[in-house]
């Protein structure tokens, strides 16, 4: 079970809802992924196009725990405001704190992320900050009372996969709260590696929504995350420099 604050989940996949080819493909991908947590963003609506369907209307949102992000925020103040707006919907009390510090890399601003997370913990939110892969920052966020830590694997939407396994493993080893690898996942094997490192979950979006067949990729991610988790729990063999025969040496001579 994945426990985040007062919530419990059997799926370890957190799925984003951005950039699917259409709502029907999105619904099918969400369904087949087995996810129980959906992320989304908060935006001004176009009041002159009120008739436009919204993605929420196409999903049975009672089946999911909703995780709004604070994407678009560049400061702690903006992130807190977006989080409060999302909570005012009455649909969620979780928030993915996302304070972007650099538009080219979309890497999080650690100082503003820390400030926003502190404020939101005090306000009673279930707080999941998207952070850089710094173990000391992760520990500080945990000390503040964050309910999960979400370090990036590589830049958002880059599909570069896990470029920092050492840093991620430091965070996983040193944090008591769940560590969810967020951003940069490209392939099922990337997700499996995150889980083999001991991550409690994986948050991804573009890897599925941008795939040639998003529904099939959603299913692949589900299996890879399950496989990676099983592999982690089973405990891998140590790596060695030289070979060790798996067949017995005894009784080899048939002469």
């Amino acid at each position: 079970m994945l426990k985040i604050g007062g919530y419990e989940f059997s799926s370890r996949l957190l799925l984003g809802t951005g950039k699917y080819p259409d709502f029907d493909i999105q619904r099918k991908a969400v369904d087949v992924s087995g996810t129980e947590i959906l992320t989304f963003s908060v935006r001004r609506m176009n009041i002159f196009e009120a008739g436009q369907p919204n993605f929420l209307e196409n999903l049975d949102i009672t089946k999911y725990t909703l995780l709004p992000n604070t994407a678009g925020a560049k400061t702690a103040e903006e992130a807190v405001r977006i989080a409060k707006l999302a909570k005012a919907s009455g649909l969620c009390d979780m928030v993915k704190v996302e304070v972007i510090g650099c538009l080219k890399t979309l890497l999080p601003d650690p100082v503003e992320t820390l400030k926003a997370s502190e404020e939101l913990v005090k306000e009673g939110f279930t707080v999941l900050p998207y952070t850089s892969d710094d173990v000391l920052l992760a520990r500080r966020l945990e000390e503040l009372g964050c309910h999960a830590i979400m370090p990036g694997a590589s830049p958002i939407g880059s599909g570069q996969g896990i470029i920092n396994p050492l840093n991620l493993s430091f965070i996983i080893e040193q944090c008591q709260v769940p560590v969810i690898v967020d951003a940069g996942i490209g392939t099922p094997s990337d997700a499996a590696i995150a889980m083999e490192l001991g991550a409690a979950g994986v948050l991804l979006n573009t890897a599925v929504s941008g795939a040639k067949d998003p529904v099939k990729m959603a299913e692949a991610m589900k299996f890879s995350i399950e496989a990676g988790r099983l592999g982690f729990e089973a405990g891998r063999i140590p790596q060695k420099r030289y070979a060790t025969a798996s067949s017995p040496v005894e009784g080899m001579s048939f002469n």
Binding site: T17, G18, T39, S41, V42, R43, F55, I156
Partner: peptide, 8 residues
């Protein structure tokens, strides 16, 4: 007036 849109 704000609402929810797709995002990751």
């Amino acid at each position: 007036l704000v609402h929810f849109v797709g995002g990751g």
